[in-house]
């Protein structure tokens, strides 16, 4: 009984494979007009048709292996990237994953219609089984598309997080031998790690003797943030650079005092200008207006 059922499945899957291969051209032509493909391949319709054909081919391969419900089926590998870029371009214009899934689902009716036309008697067992298989296969395609869309989204988030870290922590060469890091936003351990690494690297490349950590843009300084600051200061000192923390606002200063954080080992200045003045003075650099302008 079990065996015969498996055989039926296999044979109907074979029939589906045959149908997909035979009607490849027609399916592709119909799909090319569906929003999903039409809106992605705007340049030429031929391109859309080609893309549709490759998807149909992939479906045929999957059907021939009989693994209709398996989203990891090797047949999908060839179109995974294409589906990813398609769903990616759809989500870039603001479509939600649910909408993209709907668009993939919209591919089914046109194929179903073609498949139904294959059978002289729509009520026959072969016809219903064929349609059922097609439905399962299209459902799997939908899942595969969703999966690629979601993983593409995750990659994007990870990349942007990295970019945000880098963008948010620029190391500025203020003067010969003086670098400054304007810290903006909350300072968590991941960010302070990035700050520390890029700062130490620029101490080496700029041959910096003085480092100014400006925390004007840090909204709150708690014991954890203070700890990160002190670590950065200590690491910079080990590299032979002197660290000045600037931009401590009155509210921040009060919080630090109230929390009992000891910043005694850290040289602090009220503003970036004060810190720069300190660093310049210690390098015996005088900055003054020209006598003729006085």
């Amino acid at each position: 009984m079990q065996l015969s059922e498996q055989e039926t499945v296999a044979s109907s899957a074979r029939a589906l494979t045959g149908f997909l291969t035979r009607r490849r051209e027609q399916i592709a032509q119909r799909w090319a007009d569906v929003p999903l493909f039409r809106s992605v391949f705007t340049v030429s319709r031929d391109e859309a048709v080609e893309a549709c054909k490759s998807v149909v081919d992939a479906l045929a391969v999957v059907a021939s292996t009989g693994r209709l419900e398996d989203i990891e089926a090797p047949g999908f590998d060839t179109v995974r990237e294409q589906l990813g870029s398609m769903s990616g371009s759809r989500s870039r214009i603001g479509l939600s994953p649910a909408r993209i899934a709907e668009e993939v689902a919209a591919l089914r009716p046109s194929v179903a219609e073609l498949l139904r036309a294959e059978f002289p008697d729509p009520a026959a067992t072969e016809a219903t089984e064929g349609l059922l298989d097609l439905t399962i296969l299209m459902g799997t395609l939908r899942l595969v598309t969703m999966q690629t869309a979601l993983s593409a989204g995750e990659e994007l988030i990870a990349r942007q997080r990295q970019q945000l870290h880098e963008v948010a922590t620029p190391v500025i060469n203020l003067w010969e031998g003086i670098v400054a890091v304007p810290l903006i936003g909350t300072l968590d351990s991941a960010r302070s790690q990035v700050v520390m690494e890029s700062l130490l690297q620029s101490i080496v490349t700029q041959r910096a003797r003085y480092v100014i950590l400006d925390i004007t843009g840090v909204p709150t300084v708690d014991s954890l943030v203070a700890q990160h600051l002190m670590k950065t200061v200590a690491a910079a000192r080990l590299m032979g650079a002197d660290c000045v923390v600037s931009g401590i606002r009155p509210a921040t200063a009060q919080t630090i005092v109230q929390l009992g954080i000891d910043l005694g080992s850290v040289l602090t200045r009220a503003s970036l200008a004060d810190a720069l003045a300190y660093a310049l003075r210690h390098q015996d650099i005088d900055v003054s207006a020209r006598a003729s302008l006085r």
């Binding site: 520390m196 130490l200 041959r207 670590k231 690491a235 000192r237 080990l238 590299m239 032979g240 650079a241």
Partner: peptide, 21 residues
């Protein structure tokens, strides 16, 4: 730089030492 980071993470800030680039 990586040595400095490791030392700081270990809590060894070598306070008595003079350092240079």
């Amino acid at each position: 730089p990586d040595v400095a980071i490791t030392l700081v993470e270990l809590g060894l800030t070598l306070p008595g030492l003079i350092t240079a680039l």
